[in-house]
Design a protein around this nucleic acid. Structure first.
Lengths: 170, 170
DNA sequence: CCTAGATCATCAGTATACTGTCAATCAACA
DNA sequence: TGTTGATTGACAGTATACTGATGATCTAGG
């Protein structure tokens, strides 16, 4: 039985590597998102944050970072920008002076309703080159892989963390 | 025939969106890469740049950005860091004063040989949670999708650009 | 009550990404 | 030959990501 040959040090090996393909696809996805949504001045990250705050009004920044699996440090500046655009507001929590609670403003709720069709178009465009059956297969595999690799990332997704702020007695 | 229902504005819709999954998978891939390669002080981008320079010695920065589909502006600082670590060197092109040609140093060639096993481990770990058949299926679909969406990104891959510096008379 | 450990927000530092601009240089053409 | 247009490298500005540190605050235990 011949042993596996040493991989060649060429750029073609990189083109077929999972890490390269994931990076490339992410670049493409962001590019398509920005193109479809350029009228709204919202990045993909800002959009996800708005959706999460809409789903969990009164969430704090640390829990928000767990709910969308975004880096906590980065999220600070994302929140600042959303606040500067008057899409969200921060209110100090009465029972805990460390925490600032996040809420959508009317502008934030409005832009969320308006941007949805553009976001849907963007998501559809990302997969458009594939046949419908292949789109389903790819999404199914990706959902699995992201879920099974959840702990591998420094900021794992903790969707259930969002519930904590509703009542600590749970 | 009922019209498609309006998508709900909830975080669960985001979890299943292609754009979110690509971003998440990219985060996971970088995290795994950095973990496996932490002994070498090389990022995924720096690794890809080194491989490309190894494959195309004497390439210039603009062509390099086309060959690995990385942003040209960002690549400037990537090159600076690689040069600071003494992994590459830049030589002015005798026939064109605008261009600086990129070459691996001995250190650069050495670290490339040494890091390959760690990179292979990282790439394998990214797909490890899937069954072997599913890994193949996912990679096949991703290669297709990235290729078919190549023009959608601001910096499309132009692998053939690398050949130009070898002889403009082609 | 007071301290030890945990939690929250913030900041400093590094590394990707992308947009847009600029000067130096080159190539092509009138 | 002199000018136009394209190319190259560099830079400024914005936005994500991650690491690590810090101070304010809360909770638990003594």
């Amino acid at each position: 039985m011949p042993s596996k040959p040493a991989p060649p040090i060429t750029i073609d090996a990189v083109y077929a590597a999972p890490g390269y393909l994931f990076r490339r696809m992410q670049q493409i996805a962001v590019s398509i998102f920005m193109e479809e949504c350029k009228a709204f001045d919202l990045t993909p990250v800002q959009y996800a944050a708005l959706i999460a705050i809409h789903t969990h009004p009164g969430i704090d920044a640390t829990r928000l970072s767990a709910v969308i699996a975004f880096d906590r440090s980065t999220l600070g500046s994302v929140i600042e920008r959303l606040q500067a655009k008057d899409f969200i507001e921060r209110k100090p929590a009465p029972e805990d002076k460390r925490i600032k609670l996040l809420y959508l403003t009317k502008s934030g709720a409005a832009i969320l309703r308006e941007i949805i069709p553009a976001v849907e178009r963007a998501q559809a465009r990302m997969l458009e080159p594939l046949k419908p059956a292949d789109r389903k297969a790819l999404m199914g595999l990706l959902v699995q892989l992201v879920d099974l690799n959840n702990e591998a990332s420094r900021v794992p997704l903790r969707a259930e963390d969002a519930l904590e702020h509703l009542g600590k007695g749970g």
